[in-house]
């Protein structure tokens, strides 16, 4: 498993398939030199909330579609009061984000997980 992975299929701007989402509205995956970055925008009260852009860990996706030809990404967002550990991948053309949220503040909220689906910006 030493072949170079091709993550081109993940690059671009992805929009939530659910117009009524109260979570992540969009995600952008971009190349940054030899690396890949992930940017997320959350739905806010008065407009979008831009999460800090992070470097992703690329992984060969052995789940489907021929091993190293596809890629999954691990991306962790530290927002101070919470951490969001995400992984993203494409399944049958749908961009899937799974997020595990851990709260660091004293709000009493439960750590939780969620999954949302995205389509490529036309």
């Amino acid at each position: 498993m030493t072949q170079v992975m091709n993550g081109d299929e993940l690059l671009g701007r992805w929009l939530n398939t659910n117009r009524g989402t109260r979570g992540i509205s969009e995600c952008t995956v971009a190349r940054d030199g030899d690396g890949i970055t992930v940017s997320i925008i959350g739905v806010g009260e008065d407009g979008p909330i831009r999460w800090p852009t992070v470097q992703a860990i690329p992984l060969a996706n052995l789940e489907e579609e021929g091993g190293q030809r596809t890629m999954a990404l691990l991306a962790t967002f530290d927002l101070g009061f919470m951490r969001a550990e995400t992984h993203v991948r494409i399944n049958k053309g749908v961009f899937v984000i799974v997020v595990f949220v851990t709260f660091w503040d004293d709000s009493g909220r439960a750590n939780y997980l969620n999954r949302e689906f995205f389509y490529r910006e036309p």
Binding site: R22, I24, V43, F81, S107
Partner: peptide
């Protein structure tokens, strides 16, 4: 109001500890 990065996290709840989760 608690901090949030997506509005679904803007909830009021009694404290939920790890051991409270089924």
């Amino acid at each position: 109001k608690p901090q949030f990065a997506q509005i679904c996290d803007l909830v009021e709840t009694e404290r939920i500890r790890d051991r409270d989760i089924d």
